[in-house]
Design a protein around this nucleic acid. Sequence first.
RNA 1: GCGCUUGUAGCUCAAUUGGAUAGAGCGCCUGACUUCGGAUCAGGAGGUUGAGGGUUCAAGUCCUUCCGGGCGCACCA
Length: 564
Amino acid sequence: MLNNPKLNSSIQLPEKIAGINVDVPPQQFNCDISTNAAMILSKANKKPPLEIANELAELIKKNDEEIDTITTVKPGFINIKFKNSFWNKFIKEIISQKEGFGVNKKSPKIKYLIEFVSANPTGPLHVGHCRGAILGDVLSNLLSFNGHKVSKEYYVNDYGNQIIHFSKSVYFRIREILNNEPFPTSNKDLYPGDYIINIAKNIINNNKNLKFDNFDQVSLKLTTLSVAESLKLIKLNLKNLGIVHDKFVSETELVKNNEVEKTIKKLKANNFVYEGKIKAPETEKNTNWKERKQLLFRSTDFGDDKDRALQKEDSSWTYFASDVAYHNNKLDRKFDVLVNILGADHAGYIKRITSSVEAISGKKNKLVCKVSQLVKLIKDGKPFKMSKRKGDYITVEDLLNEVGKDASRFIMLSRSSDVELDFDFTKVKEKSKDNPLYYVQYCYTRIASVFRNVEKQINDDIKVKNYEFNYTNDEIKILKKISEWPKCLEVASNKLEPHRIPVYLYELSSEFHSYWNMGKDDETKRFINNDKKISDEKIVFLKAISIVIKSGMEILNVDTPEKM
RNA sequence: GCGCUUGUAGCUCAAUUGGAUAGAGCGCCUGACUUCGGAUCAGGAGGUUGAGGGUUCAAGUCCUUCCGGGCGCACCA
């Protein structure tokens, strides 16, 4: 506005304007929006903030007919209260945009690649994988909602020692079934889980002419089959959680296609790779450390603690080497921003992998890593520890059977991913106010129930003659809350913090429930009149609320039932 | 030892990307069902935002030093 020469303002703008915000202020200020502009501009103008605020207030008032009152306060805030015409225009806008309301149409559209889950294909997913899975999924929904292009990817670590141990475990289970040989439980490298038995059975049934006399002879074929089986399980788990990836990228394929060699060559050309030695790790446990000359990536150039190994002694690639190749592959596919969702235990890996992306792209592209913290499971008020020992770890399937997809998603998302999350099985199952999911769903259900009672559908398009309503302060309070929705989406997208959505939806629901109960004492606050009709004013108001709840819940991929 | 991360009400957590008098839920106390669905609502008590220092007109938020929790510190994945 200040750039507009017609205003003929005497206020000087600094070279860079940063930090000027327009926000909905805390309730007690009794106004609709507020800006800190005067305080930011104070220095460049060498005037006290309040003086600038007053000048600005004059300018704004002159140029906007929808402002009722404009006041300046203490340090230099400018507070604005709108006329009803503003709110009518606002609500008309929501009704016409429907679920598209809140999308930031001005922001440039970006091509994102979001890698998440990427759990080892050695068995079904367990609860520990859930949080990151849901986080990545909702982040993808959020960014696509905002009009960005998003590819959801799963990196399949089907190469290396773990996979050999896994397929060997399947091999022994097959021998157990076919030849009645006992499974070698003493071998700690093997996977003891019962699901391996099912995988073994499936492989036997589908490959009648395969011989299982010697592991080395079937190893290659068996590994492929075993990985395929566990991927089938994983994909089913994900689907039941409401998650479908766009692409699964196989580590083995990358190695086979020489992508690792190509990538290392590229890095070598820029002097990021060399033959050298690294010092022993600082941990006390590692007493059998052997110093060795090996192929290293210069991650210390980017601030990492030490350079990182690319090749093992037997000349096969390290996990890191093929992961660098995967990220090179991502960059080749021309994504603007790469996002990885990692578990807390992999946080130490971030520095080296972001370093590799910087090295490959010449600092042109960025990899953003988002860490999802641990989920502390609580059952009957007591912490529940999972261990790899058979029988006492909870799978995604257990979780879904017990609490369901919607409650799992909503609760896992309701906290910042930076913070450990208490997941109380007993509480999440409860269908009560203890459970924020039902609180928000109940809000939508109540609105649907009003529509039903006046023989309409909540999904119907609303048509009214005109938007000339007189909303009361209690209604404007909710409209103000709705006006914060676009900002909520913007911040959640920019900071990759989807937990802001459930938090927002809870707050909006709370204000709605509060308004609803006012109808007990005050008939004018009821949606349905005594003659079983609803006014245009009220139906438009309800529709606006339902639009925001619905689109929020769709981003979370959580159901909004019309009856509960 | 080093790195990352975290510390907000008795408990679990928010806090509009540095804004005004730090907000919810649970638990505790008091109240509202002849209901457009009580899976709800109104009110009360509860805080030196781990501690100190700094930057700023403005700090829970940024910088710094301590203290306490979590995770990590491989040729594993």
